[in-house]
């Protein structure tokens, strides 16, 4: 991707986000539910309600409401959460790092586990291990993240309680963090007790999100590797004395990784979506968990802010995937 391509993509990204903003704003006004109804006490008079409505600008017409919100968003002001009475950006800023750490951990786990298994499967082709692997992987492909989450809660949380069931860090572990990137901060400041506890909390949600990704990576990568392994250049390299593992990693992998990369990008955006339910199941204090609370409370500014944040992540991930694909493929064209 050239610099002008990148600029083009970023420009398109801004347009897309504007579209997302319009759609979210309109959808939220169409669906039933009144944020004011959620916050008033039963003794409130109609006058109180009207005053509250006016306070939040909900008495204005829709285009006017959108105009005010949109101009504020352009200035970087996402408004105030109705249910928590705090700045939306601040709330998102506190929760987003937890979700990003979880999602990236699941991404790394899924890609590494999938890559290793696909490589082993490629080395074991034409043995009985190969069809067995395909069969097991087929089963894994059929299990979605929230089912993994529930199964893991039962397995590793209840029957064989090795990992903490919920939360992000043990609250009795009195560690003060300067940032909200607990995992990264604890690692770079050598707070290993906190780091270990964070990891222990993260294992189950990470597996729930990462296992479906791993299964998809195994499937696509293994297929592409099988195709690459029968190419003449692999045969030539084999004749020149290259070891089977190097044949897979050095000769085949780079030519086979394209479809997997594209798919991983798509799956990663799905996975960010999956954090909503998985974070809920494990009471993990991330953005997804907050999104559910925001929906329950009809907290319009917060929902809008969260959706825009998710949208921005999706778009950035896609641009990043295209950049990596271009870098991996010397012919310059992105893989299909």
């Amino acid at each position: 991707m050239t610099a002008s391509d990148l600029l083009n993509r970023l420009f398109m990204a801004v347009l897309t986000l504007m579209g997302v903003a319009v759609i979210v704003f309109c959808l939220l006004r169409i669906v039933p539910g009144d944020p004011i109804a959620m916050m008033i006490s039963p003794s409130a008079t109609p006058a109180d309600i009207a005053a509250l409505r006016a306070h939040y600008g909900l008495d204005l017409g829709l285009p006017q409401q959108f105009g005010i919100w949109f101009m504020d968003v352009l200035k970087g002001n996402f408004g105030t959460s109705i249910s928590q009475r705090r700045d939306v950006m601040e709330l998102i800023g506190e929760r987003l790092p937890a979700t990003l750490e979880l999602a990236f951990a699941a991404l790394v786990f899924g890609v590494l586990a999938g890559g290793v298994i696909a490589t082993l499967g490629t080395l074991a082709r034409r043995t009985t291990l190969d069809p067995a692997l395909d069969f097991i992987n087929g089963l894994f492909l059929a299990v979605p993240d929230f089912v993994w989450a529930l199964a893991l809660v039962l397995l590793l949380g209840v029957f064989w309680p090795v990992f903490p069931l919920s939360g992000r860090i043990d609250p009795t572990l009195s560690t003060y963090f300067h940032t909200d990137f607990y995992l990264i901060e604890s690692l770079v400041t050598f707070k290993f007790a906190a780091f270990g506890d964070l990891i222990a909390h993260m294992v189950m949600p990470m597996l729930a999100l990462g296992l479906p990704l791993a299964a998809i990576v195994v499937r696509t990568l293994k297929e592409a590797l099988a195709e690459a392994m029968v190419q003449d250049y692999v045969l030539l390299a084999r004749l020149k004395g290259m070891s089977p593992l190097r044949l897979v990693l050095q000769e085949a992998l780079r030519n086979a990784v394209g479809p997997t990369l594209t798919l991983t990008g798509v799956q990663f955006t799905f996975m960010i979506g999956g954090t909503v339910i998985v974070e809920r199941i494990f009471s993990y204090p991330g953005l997804g968990n907050m999104a559910i609370d925001a929906v329950i409370n009809r907290d319009l500014p917060l929902i809008q802010g969260i959706v825009l944040t998710f949208g921005a992540i999706f778009i950035l991930v896609n641009i990043l995937v295209d950049l990596i694909a271009g870098w991996l493929n010397p012919r310059g064209a992105a893989h299909g």
Partner: peptide, 26 residues
């Protein structure tokens, strides 16, 4: 071996030097 099809006999993702010197190094 000199293979049949020069289009498929060179790895598209590796530079010529790496491929030409594989045998020499290995």
């Amino acid at each position: 071996l000199i293979p049949q099809d020069p289009q498929t006999a060179l790895n598209p993702a590796r530079r010529i030097e790496a491929q030409l010197t594989d045998g020499l190094r290995l």
